[in-house]
Write a protein that binds this DNA or RNA. Structure first.
Lengths: 344, 344
DNA sequence: CTGAAAGCGCTTACAG
DNA sequence: CTGAAAGCGCTTACAG
């Protein structure tokens, strides 16, 4: 529309992407004003804001993240570190976080620590290099995550090792494990075994199971597989448990994946779930609700955890000192895999 | 070590992160040389390279991605768009891509289109804003992906809609479906049903199933659930199939997730897998190898697809015009869910 | 190989 | 609100 007068430095280089100069020119305002509009500043008149927004739309202008991050001290980007994309726990967490971040113009970007990006640089290095404003650690911290980075960190989930100075938000694993164990006790089970593995959550769940059993005057029996908490570990741990303790009528697995393995082990020795063996998992993963499993489990409301995590991130970003750890209450989801012990 | 002489602009601001100036100073070389080392340029003497590398290590220097992207025309970052993190297919794809990218100093970053990052900006906008060098679309393209962006695009997987000008790399779905169907035919099955849903891959698999059946003189029978290809769709589709065609002795599901649903449907009417009904899936997902399923399936070597995708990306980046679509050969993985029809 | 210089596209005070 | 200015931390020619 407007004639290009006094073309600003380097603008209009053929089919280049529009810059803030182009927008300012098209809207007939200063470059600074465009920047203010971009940042949603309240001290811009509606009319000017409208014309800037129109220019942005017309030119299909996309602010350069790189330039903004370089010039400003914030990138409005939060780095989320997960251990493995295969571990779906983080998806709900992410959903919850984004619910809070989106209206604030923050965007969460995810990277997996399993495949530390090339050149010997770790995920953390990468996030730091991309000027992430804060980090959410949603996995067991590696040694290099333990050293204080110059960046706010929130830890999501219960972890075996703590990161100094980091807020921790998690589901109340101890409470959830108590609920799970108590559910089996309430059904009338006496011989209740537990399948466990490494990791902060598993440790808390295991300890709480033990405590709950003792409180009920029952003997806790725990087995593990290779140490991990995968399906094969659930299978191996359940095999051991059932071999060592043939009287077992109920099994509490540290997570749904292990429960899946346990189910196979139970079938392998010709017993049925829940007729011969009640089975309860943990996490309420998509797996648990599958028709084939119909697994009774503990819902840990990862979405709620995600929301809390995001609020904690926003708080540190705003320099509010709220190191208060957040704890989300889990709940019992009863499906077809648990029942009273058979009366034979 | 060296006395700071003629401190360069703004360096050493207290506990600031080291910049290229600091490295140059510490190594006693010019800023340009550091940049050359960073980029792995061959025209740097070993001795100087060593001293620069030592300085980098000592200062714990991390190049700023933002600055590099702004200054250079490349960010050495490849944006990978997936539809949903829950769909684990992309994990192997990513592994394969990274195998190629890593030694080249390229890093793949993943974003899900399901949750288009805040502010009305889409994943694509975000990648463009972060100056990604290329895009890998690993999902059904949305309308906005169809419009030519000023960025090279490689499509991974067979899609219902094509992106103009984009190279497509995928597993040979038609071939895989033929292998699956033929496996059931070879076992002696006559009444073989197929469970399908929406999407490019499912369409190709379904059509190939149909063709293979006809070639064998058999009647193709296809059912679907809600249209999607999730577990509940597999369940619903299988229910319909078994109700409409009680003679069915073999089922080919468009993917492993649907097969999981189908298994439940088979159990629900009191039939067993594989004794009464043979079941074959597709994808060889972690699910398929689980003890509880032991699903015969088609391995589509997503890792290989990922490698090919990465090579295609590198080719476009190097301006080699190789629009040749790549096709990866799938293979049969026989487990416990298929067998000869029972001889009753 | 070096060193000074320009520039990438923004943000941030700052004086008007 | 504006406009000129400096600067974020790099890369990229370019003359030595």
């Amino acid at each position: 529309m407007t004639e290009p007068v006094a073309t600003p430095p380097q603008s209009r280089g053929g089919r280049q992407r529009a810059t803030i100069y182009d927008v300012a020119e098209a809207a007939g305002v200063s470059k600074s004003l465009v920047s203010l509009v971009l940042q949603g500043s309240p001290k811009v008149s509606t009319s000017r804001r409208t014309s800037v927004e129109r220019a942005i739309a017309e030119l299909n202008y996309r602010p350069s993240r790189a330039a903004a991050a370089l010039a400003g001290h914030r990138s409005r980007t939060i780095g989320v570190v997960v251990d493995d994309f295969r571990n779906l726990w983080f998806v709900d967490l992410l959903d919850g976080m984004r619910e809070i971040f989106e209206p604030l113009g923050l965007s969460a970007i995810v990277a997996d620590s399993a495949h530390d990006a090339g050149g010997g640089l770790t995920v953390i290095d990468n996030f730091v290099a991309s000027k992430a404003d804060a980090l959410v650690i949603a996995c067991e911290p590696t040694p290099e995550m333990m050293v204080a980075q110059d960046i706010p960190v929130v830890v999501a989930g219960n972890r075996a090792r703590a990161i100094p100075g980091a807020t921790v938000i998690s589901s109340d694993d101890a409470r959830g494990a108590r609920i799970a164990t108590q559910h089996l006790i309430d059904l009338g089970h006496i011989h209740i075994g537990h399948l466990t593995g490494e990791g902060g959550s598993a440790a808390l769940r295991g300890e709480s199971y033990r405590q709950t059993m003792i409180d009920a005057g029952l003997e806790p029996i725990t087995r593990s597989g290779s140490g991990r908490t995968n399906e094969p570990d659930g299978f191996a741990a359940a095999q051991r448990l059932l071999a060592d303790e043939p009287a077992t009528t109920a099994v509490f697995a540290a997570n749904d994946t292990m429960a899946l393995g346990a189910l196979a082990a139970v079938h392998d020795i010709g017993r049925r779930v829940p007729e011969d063996v009640s089975l309860i998992g943990y996490d309420n993963s998509p797996l648990a609700s599958s028709q084939i499993l119909r697994l009774t489990t503990i819902e840990d409301d990862s979405r709620d955890v995600g929301r809390l995590v995001a609020r904690a991130v926003v708080a540190v970003l705003d320099d509010e000192r709220t190191d208060a750890a957040g704890l989300v209450e889990p709940s019992l989801v009863i499906r077809a895999s648990t029942g009273a012990p058979s009366s034979r």
